[in-house]
């Protein structure tokens, strides 16, 4: 099942604003999501994770604009097409039916004046107008049951649900049309740790049953190590390292990944020293030259401030199936 791409992001650039004022929040991002896989996306606050998610679904709030690149979607059994080239009507049909998204602020993702049932069924109605009202309701109830909420809650208003329940409703809603791709932007950050793991565990289980792919965004690498197949690390709007979760956890190559891993306690194996990363994320308006991480990098050396390392497969014994953008591991096979 895995192996075939379902979503390919190619050279995606996203800016906030136009011309000289533009902030380049996402730059030359190349990322491939495979069928049935959970791809984790991690990085500090402000590294452009949400912007990437909004960009590839074309939901950027103003003044966000996509200034370059392609997002190729491979429908099951159909010809691949560029999401960025869809007309408004095609885009509406594409949204949620093919790619659903659970937002960072999922607490406020439900319309306060409508019942849960209305909000679950209106999306089904919009995409499957031929379905009867009874069938829509049945489907909505099924989705609630799927995420562990009693279908009695259909007639509740959002404010009558707890945060965790609202979160589950959003996840259920995301799965209502059986999309191929589900993007989760820090879907559980507002919840306590136990609840987080419970919901994510449920999600992974559903993924195995329903066969969708997940892009999972968080700044909590420990969650990703546990729940994802592959992990991509973002810094300053670029992907700086990408590898299978186990590989990245055991052997991070980019000093930034090492720093991120060092900033939470090890889950298994020997205890590691909690290091964290000194300094603060870069100002997108005044990015450092060369590798944007070099001012904070403990291992920076002569090429780092001068030239930008490109993301590519490193020339190292463990280099298979992974990419990194770092002068310590110069690319043998660049991506893109």
């Amino acid at each position: 099942m895995t192996g075939q791409p379902v979503l390919e992001i190619r050279n995606l650039d996203v800016d906030y604003g136009l011309g000289d004022q533009a902030v380049h929040a996402v730059r030359e991002v190349n990322l491939t999501l495979h069928r049935g896989e959970v791809l984790g996306l991690a990085g500090e606050s402000g590294s452009g994770k949400s912007t990437l998610a909004y960009g590839l679904t074309r939901l950027l709030p103003p003044p966000g604009v996509i200034s370059g690149g392609e997002v190729i979607y491979h429908p099951p059994g159909g010809e691949p097409y560029d999401v960025l080239g869809l007309s408004d009507r095609e885009l509406r049909a594409f949204r949620w039916a093919e790619t659903a998204i659970v937002f960072q602020g999922a607490m406020n993702s439900l319309n306060p004046v409508h019942k849960i049932s209305t909000q679950l069924t209106d999306v089904i109605k919009a995409h499957q107008p031929n379905l009867s009202a009874a069938a829509r309701t049945a489907r909505a109830r099924e989705m609630l049951r799927l995420v562990g909420i009693s279908p009695d809650r259909m007639e509740s208003y959002p404010h009558q649900l707890s945060g965790g329940m609202r979160q589950r409703v959003m996840i259920g809603m995301a799965l209502a049309l059986e999309p191929q791709v589900v993007i989760m932007d820090e879907p559980t950050t507002a919840l306590d740790v136990v609840m987080q793991r419970q919901i994510l565990g449920q999600l992974i289980e559903l993924r195995e049953r329903l066969g969708f792919s997940v892009i999972f965004i968080t700044h909590d690498l420990s969650l990703l190590v546990e729940f994802s197949d592959r992990i991509a690390i973002m810094y300053g709007g670029r992907i700086v390292e990408e590898a299978p979760a186990e590989t990245l956890y055991r052997d991070p190559m980019h000093p930034y990944s090492q720093g991120l891993l060092g900033s939470f306690p090890a889950l298994r194996g020997p205890r590691r020293e909690l290091a964290g990363i000194p300094g603060s994320p870069p100002d997108l308006r005044a990015m450092p030259t060369g590798c944007s991480f070099h001012p904070r990098c403990p291992k920076a050396f002569e090429p780092c401030p001068a030239r930008l390392p490109i993301l590519g497969q490193p020339d190292a014994p463990t280099g298979g199936g992974r990419t990194v953008a770092c002068w310590l591991h110069p690319a043998r096979v660049p991506v893109g």
Binding site: I101, F103, V113
Partner: peptide
């Protein structure tokens, strides 16, 4: 508001987003 972005993301018709989600609130 987030729920308006969600309404767009759901691919609802523009009219429904504007009236039932935005204007209603």
């Amino acid at each position: 508001e987030d729920y308006i972005t969600v309404a767009h993301a759901k691919g609802l018709p523009e009219r429904r987003v504007a009236l039932s989600y935005a204007a209603r609130n």
